[in-house]
Design a protein around this nucleic acid. Structure first.
Length: 220
DNA sequence: GCGTGATCATAA
DNA sequence: TTATGATCACGC
């Protein structure tokens, strides 16, 4: 479908709007993507289909999907009521002291600078292939939202810098929280905020709570 | 293993 | 039903 990088926000939005109402089968056919037999073994498939359809190029680099536009693309599964079904992964929790230095330069802040949300319906009665893509929403956090995100990030970052990552649970943070992000519970990484003798830990990621993304989708 | 794309599975 | 912790796939 679209394979070139969108040169402006307007072009990106035109493309995104053109997808609204299409089923996953419609879009997969146009992009020459093969529909997975089961979502279980294709968890990120919808996101990658949308990236391709809109011309995103970042791949797995730790930066927004459209770096020239500072726009991050997020597909988001919603119920027939428009409520998000899942929390939204933002980025990995980096574990070097400098990464927690300041909010403005954090990976979370950069990823959430501006987000193009593309909802798609998820409902037990609708087969995966028949799910429809919804109306895109280009979002920027309000001053109030940004303040809370910063507060959450700061609280979590303080714990990390103090070597207390192991004390962080998913219940910390109003909008933003930290949860495991790994192949499985055996995965390991090093937390450079701790002594070498005790720094092996499970890789983690930052996620947005559904209560917050629900607010985002309804505000527009 | 790291970082991307996420959803699954079950305890609460 | 929801939130937390665990898991799946891919490129490098």
């Amino acid at each position: 479908m679209f394979q070139s990088v969108p040169q402006s926000e307007e072009i990106l939005m035109q493309r995104a709007n053109a997808l609204a109402g299409m089923t996953l089968t419609n879009l997969a056919n146009k992009c020459e993507f093969t529909l997975p037999n089961s979502v279980l073994h294709a968890k990120g498939w919808v996101g990658q289909l949308l990236e391709h359809a809109l011309g995103a190029t970042s791949g797995s680099k730790p930066q927004p999907d459209f770096p020239e536009l500072s726009i991050e693309l997020k597909s988001i599964p919603v119920t027939s009521q428009g409520t998000p079904k899942e929390s939204t992964y933002i980025c990995v929790v980096q574990l070097s002291p400098y990464d927690q230095a300041n909010w403005e330069q954090s990976l979370v802040r950069k990823k959430l600078s501006k987000v193009l949300w593309i909802p798609y319906e998820v409902n037990d009665k609708i087969p995966f292939a028949a799910r429809r893509i919804g109306t895109p929403i280009l979002w920027q956090a309000s001053t109030c939202e940004l303040q809370q995100l910063k507060t959450d990030w700061q609280e979590l970052s303080d714990l990390i810098v103090l070597g207390k990552l192991h004390m962080i649970t998913a219940s910390i943070g109003k909008y933003l929280h930290i949860r495991p992000k790994a192949a499985n519970a055996m995965s390991q990484t090093r937390d450079k905020n701790r002594l070498a003798s005790e720094n092996i830990t499970l890789p983690r990621g930052y996620y947005l709570r559904t209560s917050f993304t629900k607010q985002i989708l309804q505000s527009t």
